[in-house]
Amino acid sequence: MSGSGERGGLARGLRLWFAPERIREEGRTPDYRFSLANERTFLAWLRTALALVGGGFAVDQFLPELRWGVRVALALALLGAGALCALRAVNHWVRAERAMRRGEDLPVSRFPVLLGLLVGAVAAAMVLVVLLGRLR
């Protein structure tokens, strides 16, 4: 079981999506304060996702002088990152909840780094695009 690795974890996580009550069968119920903290972390990630979706709308609405292709590419990058961030937030919530029930270490993730890099890249691209548009 322990050797099933990342893929086994993903499959188990997916099964949980469709049988949510099964998360309560594993391990022991942690202190309710830990679960609430996990819920707040999830909500903070969800707000990040909403901010990214809002950013996608904003690019489309407030930079109308951009060429269609550039504008849509930037908007799609932000919207895609938002959707991904929301899905990953649920997955991370499930993993943390399960780890707490089993008394294991909390899961680590490289998602924050990836998201940070993506947001930095989109911001840099936006600065460039707006500056070039002004200079023209």
């Binding site: 309710y32 679960s35 979706v53 709308f57 489309d60 938002g82 959707a83 919530w93």
Partner: peptide, 30 residues
């Protein structure tokens, strides 16, 4: 004073709402 932990239902539905908003945004933007 001592609420139960959220079942998966709440996080999953909330995230689904956000994904749906992103999907409609794609439909509107493109």
């Amino acid at each position: 004073p001592r609420p139960r932990a959220a079942g998966l239902r709440y996080p999953a539905s909330a995230a689904l709402c956000v994904v749906a908003l992103a999907a409609f945004a794609v439909a509107v933007v493109v």
